[in-house]
Structures are given as structure tokens and as C-alpha cells.
């Protein structure tokens, strides 16, 4: 009976997130506009300046647009993870998060379900982006679109877990802008999303080290290799380890005895 309860709750939480997503069409469009602008404008503009040499998983010279496509998929998942955490802060401020916390299920399970729900939305957005990229002539091998699914799921879970962790620290919605500047931009720009590691090394050794150990870089590489039907073990292990670390810390953050919620208080009187 307990398993049935857990199953129904997961279906309920994921279903609610998908329903909200369907009802908020502007959210879907805006989630796609950002990476598409990067693809159509930024990548086209920098095509000549940023030539990419042959490096795995690519077997030939590629256009810059082709190179940054996995990075832009990572961008979708990163922003989606952060948006989920934004909605957690909003939900907590507005009280609906409290409704979730009062139901008779363990906190870790509720957080995992929220994470699965957010990731499902991110994966849908990623496939929509891949569809548009296909029409723009950025085409990977057909099986790559199947291989990429587990990579997108793991990357989405890792970035969503980071969002959950951040949401446990943020007391009010206004503080979220700072997190965007201090988390999203450094994660994205100090990664292999826009330029390969060897290119970063040419300009700065420190930046190269930071980019190499940036979990977002590893997630992007996992996606990049999967899209070309290849397996990157290091990226998989690194992304999985980062997911476990962020998720464990997020669960601690929401723990009713020890977490950040206790320190921050519930407000009101």
C-alpha cells in the first residue's frame, strides 16, 4: 500500500508540473527563445571567429552552431533547474510549498518527486529545441536522439538538485536575482558549453581548471557525447557524483530538525 501511495504521489506531482507547464505557454516559448537566440544570432555571428578543430566526439570539422548545440541543451536544463527552484521559493512564500510539506510522505521523497517533475519539463523543452535545430540543419545521428535521453535526464536532475539546494538557502524571492548572477552565469560561462577546454587553456590555466571541474561542463560533455552515440564515462561519473552531493545537501536543507527552514523561521507571528 505504501508503494502505491508513493506512486500516486509521484504521478500527482509530475502531472501537476506538466499541467502547469501546458497552461503557461509563454513559459515554454521563453524557455526556447533564449537558446534559439544563442543559436541563430550568437553562433552565426561568432562562426568565423571561433573555428572548432576536430575533437571527440566529432569526427570531422564542425560548424560552431553544431559545437554549441549540446551547450545550449545544458543551458535549457540549467535555466529550467533554476526556474524550478524559483518556483519553490515562490511556492514557499505563497504557502503552497507548505501544503506539500504537510502531506504524509518523507521530505526526501517529496523533493525527489519535485525534481523528477522539473526534469521532465526540462527534457521536453530540450527535445523541442533539438527539433528546431534539426530544421536549421544541425542534425545528429538518429540513434543519438535516443542516447541523449538518459544524459538529459541525469544532467537535468543534477542541475535541478542544485536549484533545490539553492532554494533551501533563499528566504525571499528578491534574493534570487543575486543567485542568478552568482550561480547561473559563472556556471555557464566557465564551462565547455561555448568553447572547448583546449581553447580555454590557451587563454588561462586557472580558467581551464575551473571549467574542467565545473559540474555543468561535465553535464554538457555527457550530453555532447550521447548525442553522437558515444559514452563519456568521466562525465557520467562526475555528473552523477555532483547530483548525489547537491541532492544530499538539499535534503539536509529541507530537514525539519536541522535544515535552513528552522534557522529562517516561518515568518508570520
Amino acid at each position: 500500500m505504501r508503494i502505491l501511495h508513493y506512486w500516486r504521489a509521484t504521478v500527482g506531482i509530475v502531472g501537476r508540473e506538466l499541467l502547469r507547464f501546458l497552461h503557461q505557454r509563454e513559459r515554454f516559448v521563453s524557455a526556447l527563445v533564449r537558446p534559439l537566440v544563442w543559436l541563430f544570432v550568437f553562433a552565426a555571428g561568432f562562426r568565423a571567429a571561433l573555428g572548432i578543430a576536430i575533437a571527440p566526439p566529432y569526427e570531422t570539422y564542425i560548424l560552431y552552431e553544431v559545437y554549441i548545440t549540446p551547450g545550449l541543451l545544458g543551458m535549457i536544463l540549467l535555466f529550467n533547474g533554476m526556474q524550478s527552484s524559483l518556483s519553490m521559493v515562490y511556492d514557499r512564500e505563497m504557502g503552497s510549498m507548505r501544503m506539500l510539506m504537510v502531506c504524509p510522505l518523507p521530505r526526501w521523497f517529496l523533493l525527489c518527486s519535485k525534481l523528477i517533475a522539473g526534469t521532465a519539463v526540462g527534457v521536453l523543452q530540450s527535445y523541442a529545441f533539438l527539433g528546431i535545430a534539426w530544421l536549421y540543419d544541425i542534425q545528429a545521428p538518429l540513434m543519438g536522439y535516443v542516447w541523449i535521453l538518459p544524459a538529459l535526464v541525469l544532467a537535468g536532475m543534477m542541475l535541478g538538485a542544485l536549484g533545490l539546494l539553492l532554494s533551501s538557502f533563499i528566504k525571499q524571492l528578491e534574493n534570487f536575482a543575486g543567485v542568478m548572477n552568482f550561480v547561473i552565469f559563472p556556471l555557464f560561462f566557465m564551462s565547455t558549453a561555448l568553447y572547448p577546454l583546449w581553447k580555454i587553456k590557451e587563454s588561462s590555466e586557472v580558467l581551464h581548471t575551473l571549467a574542467q571541474y565545473n559540474p555543468f561542463s561535465q553535464a554538457v560533455e555527457l550530453i555532447r557525447f550521447a548525442l553522437y552515440e558515444q559514452f563519456n564515462q568521466q562525465a557520467l561519473l562526475f555528473t552523477a557524483a555532483a547530483f548525489l552531493l547537491f541532492m544530499g545537501a538539499a535534503i539536509m536543507g529541507y530537514n525539519p530538525s536541522k535544515g535552513m527552514m528552522v534557522k529562517k523561521g516561518g515568518g508570520g507571528d
Binding site: M1, R8, A9, R16, R20, G95, S96, C103, P104
Partner: peptide, 28 residues
């Protein structure tokens, strides 16, 4: 529980909100 602030999802219908709560309590 009924909290001081409304905790219903404004974008969902009354039934969808209630079904969500039922799912959290394991009701088919």
C-alpha cells in the same frame, strides 16, 4: 490544514487542485 494564505494553484481547475491533494495522500 487550511493555511492563512491561499495555497491553491490558480492556473489549475478546482478538480485538478483537489485531485493533486488526493494523490499526495495516496487516494486513487
Amino acid at each position: 490544514v487550511v493555511f492563512q494564505q491561499t495555497t491553491l494553484d490558480p492556473d489549475l481547475s478546482v478538480t485538478q487542485n483537489l485531485r493533486y491533494h488526493a494523490a499526495l495522500h495516496g487516494i486513487g
